[in-house]
Simulated scan of single mutants.
Amino acid sequence: MVKDKRILYREVEIEMKMITKVFLVIAVLLICLILWALFLGGNGVLENAWNGIAGQVNETWQAITGTSNNVLPEWKTGTVEDGVEGGIDDINDAN
């Protein structure tokens, strides 16, 4: 009788380890999705940081050279309004 309880506990322990692994994988994927949205999504941290640095560099360059040329381009999203072809508006205009 004692042996049967040990086997049962062992089976439950194995199942709990599997469930824990599945939930850990789901949690890691969710964290990756959230970080992707925060850093690489539209108006994310990376885009704002790049535009902030590029704006300062371009203003300084324009003040030194007296031209309107930009050294660093601004971060652009994939829309037609931003000048990048292939956005959703191109698909709508084609129909």
Results as ranks from 00 to 15, higher is better:
residue 1 M to N: 06
residue 3 K to R: 14
residue 6 R to C: 11
residue 8 L to R: 12
residue 8 L to C: 02
residue 9 Y to I: 14
residue 10 R to W: 07
residue 11 E to A: 12
residue 13 E to D: 13
residue 13 E to C: 10
residue 14 I to W: 07
residue 15 E to G: 03
residue 16 M to T: 04
residue 16 M to D: 02
residue 18 M to H: 10
residue 18 M to D: 11
residue 20 T to L: 09
residue 21 K to L: 02
residue 22 V to L: 04
residue 26 I to M: 09
residue 27 A to R: 05
residue 28 V to S: 04
residue 29 L to K: 03
residue 30 L to V: 04
residue 31 I to M: 05
residue 33 L to S: 07
residue 34 I to M: 03
residue 39 F to D: 01
residue 41 G to F: 00
residue 41 G to D: 00
residue 41 G to C: 01
residue 44 G to D: 01
residue 45 V to I: 15
residue 48 N to T: 11
residue 48 N to S: 12
residue 48 N to K: 15
residue 49 A to N: 04
residue 52 G to H: 04
residue 52 G to A: 03
residue 52 G to E: 04
residue 54 A to F: 03
residue 55 G to P: 02
residue 56 Q to K: 11
residue 56 Q to E: 09
residue 57 V to Y: 02
residue 59 E to D: 15
residue 61 W to M: 11
residue 62 Q to C: 06
residue 63 A to Y: 05
residue 63 A to L: 14
residue 64 I to F: 13
residue 64 I to A: 14
residue 66 G to H: 08
residue 68 S to T: 15
residue 69 N to V: 12
residue 72 L to I: 15
residue 73 P to V: 10
residue 73 P to C: 07
residue 75 W to G: 00
residue 76 K to M: 02
residue 76 K to Y: 02
residue 76 K to W: 04
residue 78 G to T: 12
residue 79 T to G: 06
residue 82 D to Q: 15
residue 84 V to R: 08
residue 85 E to N: 10
residue 85 E to T: 14
residue 86 G to Y: 09
residue 86 G to K: 08
residue 88 I to A: 12
residue 93 D to E: 14
residue 95 N to W: 07
residue 95 N to V: 06
residue 95 N to S: 07
